[in-house]
C-alpha cells in the first residue's frame, strides 16, 4: 500500500504546530498502524530528520498509552480497539490519512502527537481508591458479592484510561472515565463505604482540571475501546447527587 500521511507536528507545548505531509510506500496491509509509523520514523531518521513523537507502550490494547485521532476518529476508523490494534487493512491503497493528537484543554500537547494525560492520574489520586487498614489479607470469598454486581464492576474496571472518551466528546468531558472508576468501586461492598466521598472528590478534581460537562451524546461510549457504557455515568450522577443532597 502507498499512503499519504498528514501528521500534526508541534515542537513543544508552547509552539503553534501544524500539519506536515509524508509519503509511505510498500506498506503491508497486515502492518499495524503504529508499525506503519515506526517505518515512517525509520525513514525519517535515515534521512537525518526528526522522527514523529507519539505515545505507545504495550501494543496489545491494555495499557491505554496509544492516543491518536485518525481520520476523524479516536483510535481510528474501527470499533472496540486501541490505536495499536488498528491495522492498515482498514485503509485503501492511495488513501490520505490525517493523524492528530487528542484535542482537549486538559490534555495539552507535549510534542507532535503526544499529549499530557496526567490529569487522569490527578483525578484518580483525588478519590479513585479504597482506603484499607493494613493487616492480614482477608479470604477472597469472605465477602459475598452477587454475580451481577461483580460483573458490572468488572465491566467498569475494564477502562484503561486511554482518554478516547475525552478526545471524542464534543465537550472534552471526562465523565465516562470518572464514571467507570466510581462505578467499579461503588458496585462492590469494599468500595461502597467511601462512595459519597469518592464521587464528590473525583468530580471536583475533574471540574478543577478543566474537563467539560456531559451532554449525553454517547460519542464517548461509541469510541471507547473497552465499550464502557454510559449507564455508569448515570450511576456517577446518582452517587454524586445523593452525596451532595445529604450534605
Amino acid at each position: 500500500m502507498n499512503l499519504t500521511l498528514k501528521i500534526w507536528r508541534q515542537k513543544d507545548a508552547k509552539s503553534k504546530g501544524g500539519f506536515e505531509t509524508f509519503k509511505v510506500e510498500d506498506v503491508s496491509p497486515d502492518t499495524s498502524f503504529l508499525e506503519m509509523l515506526d517505518i515512517l520514523n525509520n525513514d525519517l531518521i535515515h534521512e537525518g530528520k526528526e522522527p514523529i513523537v507519539f505515545d505507545h507502550d504495550c501494543r496489545e490494547g491494555i495499557c491505554g498509552m496509544c492516543s491518536l485521532h485518525i481520520n476523524g476518529f479516536a483510535h481510528g476508523p474501527d470499533t472496540e480497539i486501541t490505536t495499536c490494534q488498528l491495522h492498515m487493512r482498514k485503509f485503501k491503497d492511495g488513501d490520505t490519512i490525517t493523524i492528530e493528537p487528542w484535542r482537549s484543554s486538559a490534555f495539552p500537547v507535549i510534542k507532535d502527537l503526544a499529549v499530557d494525560r496526567s490529569a487522569f492520574d490527578k483525578i484518580l489520586q483525588a478519590g479513585g481508591f479504597v482506603s484499607v487498614n493494613t493487616g492480614g489479607v482477608p479470604d477472597a470469598n469472605s465477602i459475598p458479592i452477587p454475580k451481577k454486581d461483580a460483573d458490572e464492576s468488572m465491566d467498569a474496571a475494564a477502562c484503561i484510561g486511554c482518554g478516547a472518551c475525552v478526545a471524542t466528546c464534543k465537550n472534552g468531558s471526562a465523565m465516562l472515565f470518572v464514571a467507570a472508576r466510581v462505578s467499579s468501586l461503588a458496585k462492590l461492598p469494599q468500595g461502597k463505604v467511601e462512595g459519597a466521598r469518592r464521587a464528590k472528590a473525583m468530580v471536583a478534581k475533574m471540574d478543577e482540571l478543566g474537563f467539560g460537562s456531559c451532554t449525553n451524546t454517547q460519542a464517548c461510549e461509541s469510541q471507547c475501546p473497552k465499550l464502557i457504557s454510559i449507564s455508569h455515568i448515570a450511576r456517577l450522577n446518582r452517587e454524586f447527587l445523593k452525596a451532595k443532597f445529604r450534605d
Binding site: 498528514k6 500539519f19 485521532h69 481520520n71 476523524g72 476518529f73 476508523p77 490525517t98 492528530e100 484535542r103 482537549s104 484543554s105 486538559a106 471524542t168 466528546c169 464534543k170 465537550n171 472534552g172 468531558s173 478543566g210 474537563f211 467539560g212 460537562s213 451532554t215 454517547q218 460519542a219 461510549e221 461509541s222 469510541q223
Partner: peptide, 19 residues
Amino acid sequence: NWKARGGVKRYAVTKKEDS
C-alpha cells in the same frame, strides 16, 4: 464545554459516530 474542548484548537477532521 467549548473551552474544555480546546477552544479554537479543533480537529482538522471530524466524523459523526454512527450511534
